[in-house]
Amino acid sequence: MDADMTDQTSTETNAVASKTGPAGLVGASTEPGSKKSDPIIVADKITRTFGGLTAVDVDHVEIQRGAITALIGPNGAGKTTFFNLLTGFDQPNTGSWSLEGKSLKGVAPYKVARLGMVRTFQLTKVLAKLTVIENMRLGATGQKGERFWAAPFKFLWGKQEDEVTKKADDLLARFLLDKKREDFAGSLSGGQRKLLEMARALMVDPEVVMLDEPMAGVNPALKQSLLGHVKSLRDEGRTVLFVEHDMDMVRDISDWVIVMAQGKIVAEGTADSVMADQRVIDAYLGAHHDTDLSELDEEVLEAEVEAELEGDIVQEEDSK
């Protein structure tokens, strides 16, 4: 499997020293479903069908610990469904998957979160009629005051609440939301909601952070700071898996890219190698993805639409 390493010019000698994190990905095979040196999530033979449609059909995938992995693919490729399956919000028809070697099959979503895998949602789920700070406090785990019998007695949980609040304030400051502290979350803009959701997920102290389109609807300036936040998650030793259509972001921060199309994983590799892959260009990116001219946007879009249509036709033929 080390055979196709020859074209990876960026191989550096010092990077081989560590197995964990992005360094451990150097030398990993770029075949779909390749082995990683230190996988935190391993999934096998996952399928999920909705009626006659096979939304997800993943044979094998490993996610490297401590690295940022991007999941890309055309609309309807099954990325979000795959997210739902991994986090327990949906159950697959077949297959097994594990977090740090512990099987997650049939485990309820709240237990998955407690095990350290926390997700955000494509359509943000902020708690509109709670204030921003209350949204954040909710995220903290192991709160004594969340138990019914302890709840009426403030002296049992007051001190912990102060600690939770301090942690929440620190995170809010990091995500530039501290001015919105007392506002209702429902009054935030779309981009601010994305920020709040990510910050709230961090209150759980997750081992793995799963972000479903964190950049959708976020303005360029905010995007830059979000990129910084995601990178700092990796620097803290957390694993990040995200779904994203913004290829600039994917190129900028991801250590590894997994490409899905029609429910299957069709390619893997570093951002550069994946974007040079003809199959990926055909299925997803379109021929002009590298040209940074806005007038070409339409063509890119057209190509995407065409690719999708072709995909649909193939699927229809398959089902016949």
């Binding site: 709240y110 237990k111 926390v118 789920k125 902020v126």
Partner: peptide
């Protein structure tokens, strides 16, 4: 109160 707003968000935070 969070459950009233959005159950899935609460689930995703481990409750």
């Amino acid at each position: 109160r969070s459950i009233r707003e959005d159950e899935d968000a609460v689930r995703s935070l481990g409750k």
